[in-house]
């Protein structure tokens, strides 16, 4: 299948190294300690953070650090075909684990011993890159909850189709059978905390694709930081702390 037109445009009209439109909002769920929505094109997810709070199940309590938990769920209407997904199927368990590990590496867990942090992500619309969108939403929700973190975590995916590296795959491109490299980065520390790839790719090309995905993740991080400082500015002026 042709994923790139002779003019060099992708199926949704983007250039190969172009990301989809990003949109993020903070504090969307009133009762949660922190929450955020994150949109990448047609992919839309909501994340809510509860905690740090008392550990619910005593046997899981950690003396030295905080317990981080995560649950990923997809709404029945999130995909094109309506599908009733049971909770805890293999795919969502794996994604829950990936999000948990990525977030755990960012949170300064040793500052919050004997406490629990719950991260819940809910996919409302799935159009490729739900993994990345979930990580970005979870990072914003953690920041909104005021949980101490080493750095922001931002994630983006890249692929390789029709001999071209492509940034931020949508669902059609994702199902194209090519490799799909998802990375999560700490933008300020300049470190990679998550790396996944399906399918195979020659090593020199992999480097190129990885570099593209990392660049994408850093651009996402910049947007996230912008949204966070805008949100803080709004809070400051809402509380009358700032005099203009």
């Amino acid at each position: 299948m042709e994923y790139i037109s002779p003019e060099g445009l992708r199926l949704d009209g983007r250039r190969p190294m172009e990301m989809r439109q990003l949109h993020a909002e903070l504090g969307v769920i009133a009762k949660a300690d922190g929450s955020a929505t994150f949109e990448m094109g047609n992919t839309k997810v909501v994340a809510a953070v509860y905690g740090p709070r008392e550990v619910q199940n005593r046997s899981q309590q950690l003396q030295e650090q905080a317990l981080v938990r995560c649950e990923y769920s997809m709404a029945t209407f999130s995909t094109g075909e309506r599908r009733k997904r049971g909770k805890g199927d293999r795919r969502s368990t794996e994604i829950s684990l990936v999000i948990r590990q990525t977030m755990e590496s960012a949170i300064l867990t040793h500052l919050l011993p004997r406490s629990q942090i719950d991260i819940f992500v809910q996919v409302l619309q799935a159009d490729g890159g739900t993994r990345s969108a979930c990580i970005n939403a979870a990072a914003l929700a953690l920041a909104d909850a005021g949980i101490p973190m080493r750095d922001l975590v931002a994630s983006c995916a890249a692929g390789f189709l029709n001999n071209t590296p492509l940034l931020d795959l949508n669902y059609t491109e994702d199902s194209g059978g090519g490799p799909d490299v998802t990375v999560g980065v700490f933008p300020k520390l300049d470190k990679i905390s998550l790396l996944q790839m399906d399918s195979k790719l020659p090593i020199d090309l992999f480097e190129k694709v990885l570099e593209l995905a990392t660049e994408g993740a850093k651009a996402t991080a910049e947007y996230m930081r912008e949204r966070l400082s805008e949100n803080t500015r709004q809070l400051v002026s809402a509380r009358g702390l700032l005099r203009f």
């Binding site: 769920i29 009762k31 949660a32 929450s35 909501v46 994340a47 809510a48 509860y50 619910q56 649950e71 769920s73 709404a75 029945t76 009733k84 909770k87 805890g88 719950d118 819940f120 992500v121 809910q122």
Partner: peptide, 16 residues
């Protein structure tokens, strides 16, 4: 008609 309570609404809705 079906209804699902997302755990984002309350941690009690987690899992089953």
């Amino acid at each position: 008609i079906s209804v699902e309570c997302s755990p984002t609404a309350a941690p009690e809705f987690e899992g089953k």
